[in-house]
Design a protein around this nucleic acid. Structure first.
Length: 420
RNA sequence: GCGGGCGUCGCCAAGUGGUUAAGGCAGUGGCUUGUGGCGCCACCAUUCGGGGGUUCAAGUCCCCUCGCUCGCCCCA
């Protein structure tokens, strides 16, 4: 019979890679802890309407990328395609936003039904930050700084922070009208995709990867010019805040985020080493979302970081973290008494904090030593029936040249290893 | 959803129409050694993702299908 395979776009993370993931998770946790950001965990499955209302009916994510189905109770369910909507829903549902500003983070799998490619899977993982109830431009700056510092701490180089302001809802509405008239006037010169987007999502035309369209866009009205005084002032303060923290950024007036809820500050952290899917972290301000989902008017900023892409960067950078930790001792046993005793010995040493690998093969000494070597352990502990009867264990330094074996009581082993 | 590339043992990888499908790594068994790292011997794809077809003959050509991969779209 043919072996079963994982579903397309659903990948297994094998032991060789999980250390990278653990490192990212541990580092993120630590940064959040020090920034007084609390963790929130929400279900992977939500009612479809949450995303439809939150992310926007017209977005691709909602329109064609959701894993949706009906459960046995005929409820319309969707595997979360992103984290923000769920976090906001939970914050409203449990009255968190009413209790004052919230600083939250989350992590876990997200699902989007797309064609897999480099840095893009159907089940992928994000770590995200959400500040709810924070309107001050300084909160934008702090949110970005946390992401930036986290990435820097992980040793990811070659990153660039791109920044833009999408202005207020009014700004965008006005700009959108201007842009559409301009695009209509130049319709003939646009690539087919962009022509299509004039009606569906005109702002996204700015983002087009088509070089000709990009060149043409030089003459288009800009979003920056459409911002009102208040929006401009706000954006200025965000930029000043980043400058004050010496976080380098590049203004990108073409940066438009794909989810409907973004306004004012929008940013992406990208890498040139990632292929087509260059964004490692993306986010921005979403002041209208909480209200849109039935909560009180609440200002908010946040971002999400793509774990897979980050792992790719870590690996490309030849970073550490990809190898399994070697055991401190590899315990070899042979003989009926010894084999039974070995289990207890291993347990005792583990209680003392040692990393103990136990050979359960029952094969010849030679084989067991071979495996001991390959395990990378520095020490081998040997236990035969003779040793068991005497209440000792032989300790051998597998890396020492002419070091002699030592006969020790099991209790002495941890001490010797600690000293060596 | 649309394009391009690819698909030989767990991993890497020869092979480009003609008797029995190289090799390396890993794995397994054994030899040597009061015990391991080196070395040596043996085993490890009746089969080339799957299904059709062409041919005297196909892993090698054609078609379909599945999968992987890169890109578009979109996004983290």
């Amino acid at each position: 019979m043919k072996p079963l395979q994982s579903l397309r776009g659903m990948v297994d993370l094998l032991p060789g890679q999980t250390p990278f993931w653990q490192r990212i998770e541990a580092t993120a946790r630590d940064h959040f802890r020090r920034a007084a950001v609390e963790e929130i965990r929400t279900p992977l499955l939500e009612v479809t309407e949450l995303f439809a209302r939150g992310i926007g009916e017209a977005t691709d994510v909602v329109g064609k990328e959701m894993y949706s189905f009906e459960d046995r109770g005929e409820r319309h369910c969707t595997l979360r395609p992103e984290g923000t909507a769920s976090v906001v829903r939970a914050a409203i549902q449990h009255g968190l936003v009413a209790q004052g500003p919230q600083r939250l983070w989350y992590g876990g799998p997200m699902f989007r039904y797309e064609r897999p490619q480099a840095g893009r899977q159907r089940q992928f993982h994000q770590i995200g930050l959400e500040f709810l109830g924070h309107a001050d431009p300084r909160s934008d700056v702090e949110a970005i700084a946390i992401a930036w510092d986290l990435l820097m701490d992980l040793g990811v180089g070659g990153l660039s922070l791109e920044l833009n302001s999408l202005g207020s809802a009014d700004d965008r509405l006005r700009y959108r009208a201007d842009l559409v008239t301009w695009l209509e006037a130049h319709r003939e010169d646009l690539d087919p995709d962009s022509q299509q987007r004039i009606s569906t999502n005109p702002l996204r035309v700015l983002d087009s990867k088509n070089p000709q369209t990009q060149a043409l866009l030089a003459g288009a009205p800009t979003l920056a010019d459409a911002l009102n005084g208040e929006s401009r002032e706000r954006f200025l303060r965000v930029r000043q805040g980043l400058e004050a923290l010496a976080i380098p950024f590049r203004l990108n007036p073409r940066l438009v985020r794909g989810l409907d809820y973004y306004g004012h500050t929008a940013f992406e952290i990208t890498s040139s080493q990632l292929g087509a899917q260059a964004t490692v972290c993306g986010g921005g301000r979403y002041d209208g979302l909480v209200e849109q989902l039935g909560g009180p008017p609440t200002a908010a900023v946040g971002w999400a970081l793509g774990m897979e892409r980050l792992v790719l960067l870590l690996q490309a950078g030849g970073g550490e973290g990809g190898s399994a930790p070697a055991p401190d001792v590899y315990l070899i046993s042979r003989g009926e008494m010894a084999e039974a005793q070995a289990l207890a010995l291993a347990r005792g040493w583990r209680r003392q904090g040692l990393v103990v690998a136990l050979d359960l093969s029952g094969s010849a000494y030679g084989k067991q030593f071979k495996r001991a070597d390959r395990s990378g352990a520095r020490w081998a502990a040997i236990l035969g029936d003779a040793e068991t009867a005497e209440g000792v264990v032989i300790l051998r330094d597998l890396r020492g040249e002419a070091t002699e074996d030592r006969r020790l009581t099991p209790d002495a082993v941890a001490g010797v290893l600690g000293a060596a």
